[in-house]
């Protein structure tokens, strides 16, 4: 689950992560403003037809997205049972009210979760944290100290796994590994946090020792390019959203979430 460091090279993987982020924004914002099955369904259909070109491969695709496929229907069920009732009531029990309206909302919610979450999981699966940091600092001009600090923190995810293993051994060697499972887990999790903060403190010194945070301009060894391909990706995100929204408006199902309900 934590394999965000291993990125298989592909055309999509090489696109600037900032473009992926912007494409997701362009796609998500219009979709989240409405709650209707048509816009979400249309967007989802287009997205599904594009996923094979995302450079993920089916195995990785399922490994990354299974959780979304599992949770989207669950979210739908919640709304079906407790969502705002309208129209014909099919069943009623305590606070549960399954109605025509709540079923429609449920379907819309489920499709919306899929349409919003899937492309983002798929696009971000090919983001390399270092490239992302380069992009954030060079393209979006976020402050370098924070971007690189964050990147250093992110790199520690890889170390967490090793550290956890080392901690397990350490506690075993010191005779304190025989406790109950939950206590042991919590103890280890706390120890891991302590260890990482200590690591972070040391790393900060190491970064300063190499001139990090020095006054004066900083340069970037890797150029973060934002070219034609990147613009096209953003445009693609916006287009999918536009098609979906148009379809919803034409079908008369556009349902603005902030509007009167």
């Amino acid at each position: 689950m934590i394999d965000i460091q291993t990125v298989v090279p592909s055309r999509v993987a090489r696109l600037n992560p900032v473009a992926k982020l912007l494409a997701i924004v362009a796609l998500t914002v219009p979709l989240v403003l409405t709650l209707d099955a048509v816009s979400a369904g249309v967007a989802l259909a287009i997205e599904l037809s594009l996923f094979p070109f995302a450079g993920l491969g089916w195995r990785r695709f399922w490994r990354r997205t299974w959780i979304v496929w599992l949770l989207a229907p669950l979210t739908g069920v919640t709304i079906a049972l407790y969502g705002q009732a309208s129209g014909q009531i099919y069943a009623e029990w305590f606070v549960v009210r399954i109605s025509e309206g709540s079923l429609a909302l449920a379907l819309a919610t489920m499709l919306r979760v899929l349409a919003i979450a899937l492309p983002s999981v798929v696009l971000f699966a090919t983001v390399d944290p270092t490239d992302l940091a380069d992009g954030l600092a060079q393209v979006l001009r976020l402050p370098a100290r924070f971007v690189l600090g964050g990147l250093a923190g992110l790199r520690m995810i890889g170390l967490f796994v090793d550290d956890w293993r080392a901690l397990e051994l350490a506690r075993r060697s010191r005779g304190v590994a025989d406790r109950g499972r939950i206590r042991r887990f919590l103890g280890m999790a706390f120890a891991l946090l302590v260890l990482s903060i200590r690591r972070g403190t040391k790393l900060a010194v190491a970064m300063e020792a190499r001139g990090f945070g020095a006054p004066g301009p900083r340069t970037w060894a890797r150029e973060s390019r934002f070219g034609m391909a990147e613009w096209l990706l953003v445009l693609l995100g916006a287009t999918i959203a536009a098609v979906a929204v148009t379809a919803a408006v034409l079908a008369g199902s556009w349902n603005f979430i902030l509007g009167p309900s």
């Binding site: 690189l148 690591r199 020095a214 900083r218 890797r222």
Partner: peptide
């Protein structure tokens, strides 16, 4: 505990970047 970045080349480049080397 003093490795900052994920790739060898970037790690060596890190100090130069901080000093503003082209």
């Amino acid at each position: 505990s003093q490795v900052v970045l994920a790739r060898v080349g970037d790690e060596v480049a890190f100090g130069c970047e901080n000093l503003g080397v082209p």
